[in-house]
Design a protein around this nucleic acid. Sequence first.
DNA 1: CGCGCAGTTGATCACAATCAATTAACGTGG
DNA 2: CCACGTTAATTGATTGTGATCAACTGCGCG
Lengths: 234, 234
Amino acid sequence: MPHQMLIARLRSVTGLSEQDQAKLESMPHTIKRFAPGECLARQGDRPVSCAVVMGGFLSRQRVASDRIQITSFYIPGDIPDLHTLHFPEMDRDLRSIGTSIIALVPHSYLREILAKSAALAHAFWPETLIHTAIYREWIENLGSREALPRLAHLLCEIAARLELVGLLNNGRFHVPFTQQDIADACGLSTVHANRTIQELRRRKLIEWNGHAVDLIQRDRLELLADFRPSYLMR
Amino acid sequence: MPHQMLIARLRSVTGLSEQDQAKLESMPHTIKRFAPGECLARQGDRPVSCAVVMGGFLSRQRVASDRIQITSFYIPGDIPDLHTLHFPEMDRDLRSIGTSIIALVPHSYLREILAKSAALAHAFWPETLIHTAIYREWIENLGSREALPRLAHLLCEIAARLELVGLLNNGRFHVPFTQQDIADACGLSTVHANRTIQELRRRKLIEWNGHAVDLIQRDRLELLADFRPSYLMR
DNA sequence: CGCGCAGTTGATCACAATCAATTAACGTGG
DNA sequence: CCACGTTAATTGATTGTGATCAACTGCGCG
């Protein structure tokens, strides 16, 4: 059984029969480990299975001439390529940030159980809708906030998402990100991302040593970022 | 029967029974007209029906203190609030740009037919996935392109989407947008959006008089914008 | 021990925001 | 039919955020 939080989310949808629930529990899958920077899939690939993040972080990204733009991060419990069930081709690279543990579930199995049960289709659909809502927030973040609140918003979002899968400890969490990754997600240069992080530190809103981030004044950080987490829940 | 292109898209999904197809054709709906600037739904609303755009344009947007950020445009054939079937609350305002004609289809009906047929669920799911792909492109657009290619990309996207529903005439199309709307979508000031449009005109890539836009050198515009339309198709 | 990468810092430059006017287009009412 | 108000588009001047270029530091690792 892939990630338990994912299973719990899927099961929480009403209308699932005992059978459906059993199909979720007994989902066939193979576990695979990916090295830092390794690509699970590249733009143009047509994966034959969906990836469930069990541990670690992934990014969806594209190399645009000189810059890299990251369009999303994926954390444990996410299925970054669920849409390939309908649109087989990956539009962007899917890369492991740091080491990650991935459960691969064959398309064939998912297609089969989804075709047989409308309730299961209703359970999986929201998994893509959540990320749609996140994309909308990113558009707002990139289009309307300047560097400081923009970076703050990203941190708040990651913390909130980690919290939902139990990976946040009192405002503290671990990320494999480099400042380059943060810059690529926020559409900033590394230099400016660095300065912005320093400004957050200077204001005593966060601590960030190595791969450990601590939101020491989470409420004030969320205020600065104009962050409201409701979009992450259903 | 709401928008014919939408119906055609939905019907093109394999595995639909005669019954399913009939349910699509005979979808109950009421037609409503919205005035320029009027809101179909506001942030926090819980609509009881889904809106199918029959004519005109909508924007999803949010007033952020001083600025407005538009996160998406909707054109005929789109269902901007299909996700409210799963997440009942609107996260942003849905506004009519110019006058628009909307078909409202009750949630209750959609829920009923989707609950009974897994195939229908598979037909509607991609309607949200297309917009997810569009969001990803917007993130890249806002995060990694500067004003000129950014605005060009938006124009290319709108043209390509209109083309898919037969509303593009030899590179020419009609939009009710003001330059303010374009600016709000691109994360630019009106002044700079204006200058950027003028630069596109100066380079003889577009003509834009009143509400009529003409991509007189579409290929060169797409080159400038680094636009590839594959993300709009399935 | 040295190489390389991540992070930090400083100096300079450019794109785009802001502020401030001006012009054009369009309705409406006198 | 013209005066007026309103909204959209245009232009110029100035300011500032964030990019770029260029060292330099500290640390982990082979």
